[in-house]
């Protein structure tokens, strides 16, 4: 594979400011800069050209995964995660690099005006390089987006099941909807943490709003009960509906040592009794 000629690098360096103007104009025209500040784009365009020329001058190879390209790659990673957060789509983000091709090839045409054979070769080289950088931009853009989605999913999981304080020393976790393994795990972890934070002696897991329980979820419930005991608190499971009771028995799961109550009110009454609290009706 032929390498980039010194003439190409020189041409690039000589026309940096010209390229910047043309590239910026092309970006504006393509609509890739919507919602972004013009001065920011101008800065990014100038910065990228500076990084690109200095890397090529230092003899950066065609392989952009090498350390010589570290600065360029980091610049693009920062740029694409910033775009992802600004709500730009992948096409707009990738256009940043691809829009450079037009102005750059024009410059190459001028530089190699009397060497038509070299033009094609150098354009191809440059094109491959920019493609690589563009793909890297898209890849990091995708990563940032997925990181955003993952964070939102986790936030949603935590929001969906609040741990509430019923009484001084009594926490309740009312679970509603289908329990999948991951959700059960997250919820149980936050319950355990709340027990430590509040010093609650009794935790009630209410599963009235849970339509079905599979083996994995039932096992998670049992593990949680055991973990709560190891931490030095007690756990009561309330709202076990007939179907779920049947499932548990069918699965052959051992609920020995687990206190269950028909509903949340009974569970709270038991918790209060254990705490030595008696309630009387005011006459």
């Amino acid at each position: 594979m032929a390498a980039l000629q010194q003439i190409t690098v020189d041409a690039l360096k000589r026309s940096e400011s010209q390229l910047a103007v043309q590239w910026h104009a092309d970006l504006e025209a393509s609509g890739a800069t919507r919602n972004l500040k013009p001065e920011e784009i101008r800065q990014q365009v100038a910065d990228f050209l500076r990084l690109l020329t200095s890397t090529l001058e230092k003899g950066g190879s065609a392989n952009i995964t090498t350390t010589e390209w570290d600065d360029v790659r980091h610049f693009l990673e920062k740029l694409s995660s910033q775009r992802a957060l600004a709500g730009q789509d992948s096409q707009q983000t990738a256009s940043f690099i691809f829009a450079l091709k037009g102005p750059l090839f024009t410059q190459l045409q001028n530089a190699f005006a009397d060497q038509p054979l070299l033009i094609a070769e150098q354009v191809l080289q440059m094109s491959e390089l920019l493609d690589g950088l563009g793909l890297h931009t898209i890849r990091t853009y995708q990563k940032s987006r997925e990181a955003v989605i993952k964070r939102q999913q986790e936030e949603l999981l935590e929001l969906s099941t609040p741990v509430v304080k019923l009484w001084d020393g009594v926490l309740a976790l009312p679970m509603i909807g289908t329990l999948d393994s991951q959700r059960t795990q997250v919820v149980m972890e936050s319950l355990l943490q709340r027990i430590v934070d509040t010093g609650a002696e009794i935790a009630i897991i209410d599963i009235t709003g849970v339509p079905t329980v599979d083996t994995l979820v039932a096992q998670h419930l049992l593990k949680t009960v055991t973990a709560i005991r190891l931490m030095g608190a007690d756990c009561i499971i309330s709202g076990v509906r007939p179907q779920i009771a049947q499932t548990i028995v069918h699965l052959g799961l051992d609920l020995q040592g687990v206190v269950t109550k028909a509903n949340l009110a009974d569970a709270l009454a038991l918790a209060l009794r254990r705490l030595g609290v008696t309630l009387t009706k005011a006459v």
Partner: peptide, 23 residues
Amino acid sequence: MQPAVAITLVELGMTLPGVSTAL
């Protein structure tokens, strides 16, 4: 016992039967 430690012990298969615990 910290929550993460408790969860790990249970997963490991150690439930410390017969050991009394407090917060």
